[in-house]
Amino acid sequence: MVRVLVNVPKQIAANAPFDVKVLISHPMESGQRRDQLGQAIPRDIINHFICTLDGETVLDADFFPAIAANPFLSFSVVAEKSGTLALTFTDDHGVTQTELVAITVT
C-alpha cells in the first residue's frame, strides 16, 4: 500500500470550484539514473492518475519522468451535490490503488 494524503475543504459550496490536494508517497524513479555498480535503475513512476466524482471523470492525466519523488497534485473541482471522489493511480510496476474521499456540498 502506497501512503496517500488527500485534502479537500470541509465545507464546499455547490457549483463553486474547490481545491483537491493530493500527496502520494512514491519514489518516481526516472529510469535515467544508475546505481553504484553502474547498472541502470529501472523506471518506476506513477504513469497514470484519474479522479472521478460519482463516476464522472474530473481529471485524467498521464505522468512522465522528471517529477520529484512524493508528488504533490493540486487541482480544482466543481460539484453540484455531495458525493465521493475516487482517485486512482497506476505505476510502472502495474500497482493500482484507489482512494475514496467523501465530499460534503452545502
Binding site: 501512503r3 500527496l23 504533490f72
Partner: peptide, 17 residues
C-alpha cells in the same frame, strides 16, 4: 509555501505513518 501548507508538505506522509 510547501512548509506553510500541511496538505502540500510531503513530510505529512510520514506523520500519517
Amino acid at each position: 509555501a510547501m512548509q506553510d501548507d500541511d496538505a502540500a508538505n510531503p513530510a505529512f506522509l510520514w506523520v500519517q505513518q
